[in-house]
Design a protein around this nucleic acid. Structure first.
Lengths: 276, 276
DNA sequence: GCCCGATTTCCACTTAATGGAATTGGTCGG
DNA sequence: CCGACCAATTCCATTAAGTGGAAATCGGGC
């Protein structure tokens, strides 16, 4: 009577691995400390299974145990994997410097993100501040796809089928405000089709515009620009949108220029790094 | 004739999960693109097993497939987990602001790290630069434990047994220069015992000093300060070391001050954050 | 268009994961 | 200080699920 796979769509993956990763995913900003019991609740897994899997995750260095609290936290290895993501992203390698320059030039925030399930994840978010000391770069932060310009630009960029799946999940998520919300999302997507970008003021006092980056052979990204502490008007959105479109064009050019011919790729690979 | 567990010490963890994580770990800065074949080689796992596990890792969002190359890369979900580590670290929450201020005040690099196996992982590394625009903060970067002040300070801070295990691994790692290297490590450890810190010039033109942060109920960290483009002298090391010891004292105070009584902890936990 | 290398699917095998039940351990109240 | 309670962990019989060698399939290169 094996309780049929709860999470995940359904295909035949490795169950233990799926579950282990799902345990890691239970940790997120705001939920930084979890005991086995709490993990069991949140994931719906049997308590004994959770016990065994967390033990393994500690052994492989992804969690560490806070004995006195009988809880676990994400360990340093997870952070270094995250660092590897950034170092390994060819897109960020090209766009990072451009984005930093553009942020300074236009005096606004510039961000690059891609999707993880129903969230957008910043590969890099450059927070502009007049005082150079207070400028900052954030990576890995998540924002909800359906509510942000970033997410809606992304939705406009992906294949129809994938978008439908996601829209269905949003409907399920906030059953209440659904109708209006989905309409908003659709409107933003049409805006991207029409103008190349969409403008959304998700958080009060912040106006953000975003555009998808769709290039053959690459995952789909979204690029955004935003400003704080302003009243968002149609006109301001259009102005930032103009900057964004101009910048996105340069980005796409840089990407296709820098990207080596895929057929050549395999020949340059594999520079061994000894056992480190 | 199941090939006895290759990696990991040996205890009885969940095999598939261990293997899946080991596949993720095969990706690191410098190795950002791997095909199933290459993963099989590097991990020593059978090709068919790798095929299945990478498939699962794609399903759960930890890898994505670059079809045209028939390879995989780490996906955005990994990065957001990394972000969760930083956001969830109570130590970084307290020390981050102090470190930034200290970097500006002393005009040098300040870093906080902890261990992952035989590597030190920066929770935060603040790179000082006279031009504020060029200052940067890095997280997740790895440096070898046995070669850096950070790593040796850490070694000085951990229990004897753990240190012995690690030293044995270093011996295995660089069989050649072992004797001299181990002696160097021991010397640094004695320096920590005597002066509170050790100074190492791992990379030419960079002088680094580090000290362990050992507090009841917390994992063991190491704090470092470093300067670039200088000739490292005994005197300079002593000076930076003095700054470091003074700063570390303030850090420890801040940590024990901010840390709530462990026995009270469980009562404040669990502020639900809905499904986001 | 055909061949060759690599990757993925197949399948019988059996290991190894599973989850309910019992046990252990730690905390609070008496 | 001791006993009761709550939760986490270990135990164990069950069998599902993962395993890896072999065959098939897929692509790119010639």
């Amino acid at each position: 009577m094996a309780s049929a796979r709860q999470y995940s769509g359904g295909a035949n993956g490795n169950r233990s691995l799926e579950r282990g990763i799902e345990i890691l995913r239970a940790f997120r900003p705001g939920v930084d400390t979890l005991g086995n019991g709490e993990i069991a609740e949140r994931t719906g897994l049997p308590r004994s299974t959770v016990s065994r899997l967390t033990k393994t995750l500690v052994e492989v260095g992804m969690l560490y145990e806070v004995r006195i609290e009988r809880t676990y936290r994400l360990a340093a290895a997870v952070l270094s994997l995250g660092h590897a993501v950034r170092m390994g992203s060819p897109v960020l390698k090209v766009l990072g410097p451009l984005m930093r320059a553009e942020s300074t030039r236009r005096r606004l925030n510039v961000g690059l993100a891609t999707a993880d399930r129903t969230m957008m994840v910043y590969l890099e978010s450059i927070r502009y501040n007049p005082r150079p000391t207070l400028r900052s770069i954030v990576a890995g932060q998540q924002v909800p796809m359906e509510l942000t310009s970033l997410g809606r630009a992304y939705l406009a960029g992906i294949p129809d089928k994938a978008r439908d799946t996601l829209l269905a999940q949003f409907r399920r998520r906030n059953a209440a405000a659904t109708k209006a919300l989905i309409a908003e999302v659709q409107k933003s997507i049409r805006a991207v089709r029409r103008d190349g970008y969409c403008a959304v003021s998700w958080q009060p006092g912040v106006l953000a515009v975003a555009t998808p980056i769709v290039l053959e052979g690459l995952p789909i990204y979204a690029l955004n620009m935003s400003m704080q502490d302003i009243e968002s008007t149609e006109a301001l959105g259009a102005e930032i949108g103009k900057y964004l479109m101009e910048f996105a064009a340069r980005c796409k050019e840089a990407l296709s220029g820098s990207r080596p011919d895929p057929t050549l790729l395999r020949h340059q690979q594999s520079q061994e790094l000894a056992s480190i």
